[in-house]
């Protein structure tokens, strides 16, 4: 048990989380919008016509890699271990894209913005994707795929 949480980053996690929450608060109080990345990505690319005005969606989506790049330039390399292989990237991407549109949101829209609003829909959606996320990784490990 001693090394179960050996790799956890609680302090960085909390600080980064506060930054993410503050960014979401800027979207809400500044623009009256939900900082839901799946919806904003669909809006920015023109896949949907619903949601924020397109220039705002594009600005937010462009900001995401810019912010990550700034951290890399200021604090040094950002760890991003892509060990899942091409098939997992493509299949995972397709399912994430389809599922977030069908379910009207992802970790940011439902998980951060909706749960903090105590939205019943977001609480149910977050429980749903957490359970299937845990189950998927457990099944993949059992089958000897990835991790």
């Amino acid at each position: 048990m001693g090394d179960v949480f050996a790799n956890a980053m609680p302090v960085q996690g909390l600080i980064g989380g506060l930054m993410i929450g503050t960014a979401s608060a800027i979207m809400l109080l500044g623009l009256g919008r939900i900082a839901g990345v799946s919806g904003l990505a669909a809006r920015a690319t023109g896949i949907t016509v619903d949601g924020a005005p397109r220039p705002l969606a594009i600005a937010f989506v462009v900001g995401l890699p810019l912010g990550a790049l700034l951290v890399a330039l200021i604090l040094g390399p950002v760890e991003a271990r892509f060990e899942q292989g091409l098939a997992a990237l493509v299949i995972g991407g397709l399912v994430v894209g389809f599922g977030t549109r069908l379910g009207s949101g992802c970790t940011s829209g439902h998980g951060v913005c909706g749960m903090s609003r105590l939205s019943a829909r977001s609480l149910v959606a977050t429980a749903s994707f957490m359970v299937t996320g845990f189950a998927t990784v457990a099944v993949m490990k059992a089958l000897g795929l990835g991790l």
Partner: peptide, 9 residues
């Protein structure tokens, strides 16, 4: 907001 969100991630 996007940049702060990305930096937080």
């Amino acid at each position: 907001a996007g940049a702060l969100f990305g930096a937080g991630l």
